[in-house]
Computed example of a mutant assay.
Amino acid sequence: MRIVFAGTPEFAVPCLRAAANKADVVAVYTQPDRPAGRGRGLTPSPVKLEAVKRGIPVHQPESFRSAESRATLRALEPDLMVVVAYGLILPQSVLDIPEHGCWNVHASLLPRWRGAAPIQRAIEAGDTQTGVCLMQMEKGLDTGPVLLAQAIDIGAEETGGQLHDRLAELGAQVLGDALGLLRATIQLPAQPQAVDGVTYAHKLDKAEAKLDWSQPATRLVNKVRAFNPWPVAEAQLAGERVRIHAASALDEAHTAAPGSVLRASREGIDIACGIGALRIRSLQREGGKPVSAQDYLNARRDLLGA
């Protein structure tokens, strides 16, 4: 099989490896190099780095609007195009080029969490299960029929970063299984997505990271987990802006104003919420590094008497 692979971030790298192990990846499409880091130098995507290491030709068009960009893809004569977190919307004229169309590896159990940030939105919403779907792409946003799916449980304290890594490997496994079936000429049954239960995972915005202490502690702890490692939850703590890396929800009745420090000890700093309390276990001061609550209190002795 001649496969064209399209992907950009680290999440897509395990799938590229799986595709290369099962078929002839004749080209890789990825986003153009973008400025990154303190020097704002042009930085290649993780998928580009993996492709270069494997000696796979790389294409980085800004879009597929031009006839030339589509002609370049058509000239590759792909049997299949595999798309994983590519970052470009593919028009129907591109979806129709490969003989077997385009497959997409998506990190949710569709139709729940269509869109850009399914991993983080699942944790933020308090979901206890998610998974990976291999979808036959069509023009709509993550609306195509599902070819293969695999579910996994979300850990009670699992962060967005941890779940990201597990789903990246699971996606590679699902893709590898599907490519093996396709090579064996076994038809994958395309199951239309359910009409009910559709939700959208909107792109993460840094402004969302600010915690509102008037909300329930259970909602805030889900945000802390979901937004780790980016954009990282932040809040005002006793007059200081901090970023919160790890926390727990306490089912505790109180009459304190939201945002008040209820107690501070080596176990954590307990903050009054609209319902319950949030125990902060790891946090970061402006310009500092993440530290435990105990180490933070060494510099904020005033909180120990709360």
Rank of each mutant, 00 (worst) to 15 (best):
T30K: 07
Q31D: 10
Q31C: 12
Q31L: 15
Q31R: 15
P32G: 09
P32R: 01
P32F: 01
D33H: 04
R34Q: 15
R34V: 11
R34E: 13
A36F: 11
A36G: 08
G37Y: 08
G37M: 03
G37L: 06
G39C: 01
G39A: 14
R40G: 09
G41N: 04
L42H: 02
L42M: 14
T43L: 03
T43K: 09
T43R: 11
S45P: 09
S45W: 08
S45H: 08
P46L: 03
V47E: 05
K48R: 14
K48S: 14
L49E: 13
L49S: 13
L49G: 00
E50N: 04
E50T: 10
A51S: 05
V52E: 15
K53G: 13
K53R: 15
K53P: 00
R54M: 12
I56V: 13
I56M: 06
P57E: 11
P57D: 11
V58K: 10
V58Y: 09
V58H: 10
H59C: 10
H59P: 01
H59M: 12
H59A: 14
Q60H: 04
P61F: 07
E62Q: 14
E62K: 12
S63P: 02
F64V: 03
R65Q: 12
A67L: 14
E68H: 12
E68C: 04
S69N: 12
S69K: 07
R70C: 14
A71Q: 12
T72S: 12
T72Y: 00
R74C: 12
R74P: 10
A75N: 13
A75C: 02
L76Q: 12
L76K: 08
L76E: 15
E77G: 04
E77Q: 13
P78A: 06
P78V: 00
P78F: 00
P78Y: 00
D79L: 04
D79Y: 05
D79Q: 11
D79P: 06
L80T: 08
L80I: 06
L80A: 07
M81Y: 01
M81C: 07
V82W: 00
V82P: 04
V83D: 08
V83R: 02
V83Y: 00
V84L: 03
V84G: 00
V84S: 04
A85E: 02
Y86V: 10
G87K: 03
L88E: 01
L88K: 13
L88D: 03
L88A: 05
I89A: 08
I89N: 03
L90Y: 02
L90W: 00
L90K: 06
L90M: 05
P91D: 01
P91R: 04
Q92I: 06
Q92N: 11
Q92C: 03
S93L: 10
V94T: 09
V94K: 08
V94R: 03
L95Q: 07
L95I: 10
D96C: 10
I97M: 05
I97E: 06
I97Q: 02
P98D: 03
H100Y: 14
